[in-house]
Simulated scan of single mutants.
Amino acid sequence: MDSIILLLLILAAVMVPNIMIQRKQRRRLAEIHQMQEDLKIGDQVVTTAGLYGVVTGIEETRVELEIAPQVRTWWERLAVVRNVTNEELKSTASVDDTQPTVE
């Protein structure tokens, strides 16, 4: 009887962290998917390859990125992993304006 309880405790100790990690990963994937759906022309984004570009065109499964002046390439929408424009807006909104500035 004691060995069964010990076995159940060991299984719980192994499974609980795995379940928590899976939940966190699912939540992050859902956030990325929502960001990909919310892309709009003019957003500065980063792809899975680390390429920075500005969205200049959007189709159902592809986005056109301008990676240099007059250089445009098409990417799968799923390759976009970060919207730098939104991150900049969030970081500037969280800055406390009551702090005195140093000149």
Rank of each mutant, 00 (worst) to 15 (best):
V84A: 11
P17Y: 01
A68N: 11
W74M: 08
I32P: 01
L29G: 01
R77G: 03
T85F: 02
L8W: 04
E37T: 10
V16C: 02
D43C: 09
V81I: 15
T92C: 02
P100M: 07
D38I: 05
G50H: 07
V46Q: 05
V71F: 05
I41V: 15
E88Q: 14
L7V: 04
M15C: 08
M20L: 15
V95Y: 02
V71Q: 15
R28L: 14
W75D: 00
K24S: 14
L6Y: 03
E76M: 09
I67C: 08
L9A: 04
T92L: 12
E64S: 14
K24P: 00
R28W: 06
P100A: 10
L39N: 08
L11V: 04
A79P: 01
T85Y: 02
K90D: 12
M35Q: 10
K24C: 02
R62I: 03
T61Q: 15
I32T: 14
N86Q: 15
A68H: 13
E37N: 12
T73R: 13
I58N: 03
D2F: 04
L7K: 13
Q44E: 13
E59F: 06
P100T: 01
Q22L: 13
M35L: 15
T47H: 01
D43R: 03
A79I: 02
I32M: 12
Q22S: 12
E31F: 05
E64F: 06
Q22M: 10
D43L: 06
T56I: 06
E87I: 09
R82A: 10
T56P: 00
I4E: 10
V16H: 01
R82F: 09
D97H: 12
A93H: 07
I19G: 07
I10T: 09
I21Q: 10
N18E: 09
E76D: 14
T101M: 14
N86P: 00
G42S: 07
V81C: 11
M20V: 05
V81E: 02
Q70C: 07
M1S: 14
G53H: 00
A13Q: 07
R28P: 00
E103P: 03
W75A: 00
V45N: 00
V71L: 08
P69C: 03
L11T: 04
L6Q: 13
G57A: 11
R26T: 06
W74Q: 10
E64D: 13
R26S: 09
P69N: 08
L78Y: 06
E87Y: 08
V102K: 11
R82G: 03
R72E: 14
M1H: 07
L9Q: 13
M15H: 02
V95C: 05
E76T: 02
T48I: 09
Q70D: 15
R72W: 03
P100N: 04
Q70V: 06
L11E: 09
E103W: 12
G42L: 06
E37D: 11
W74T: 15
V16N: 01
I32W: 07
T73P: 00
D2Q: 08
L6C: 05
D38Y: 05
V102G: 03
L89A: 14
I4P: 01
I32H: 07
R23C: 06
K40Y: 06
G57C: 05
V80G: 01
N18H: 10
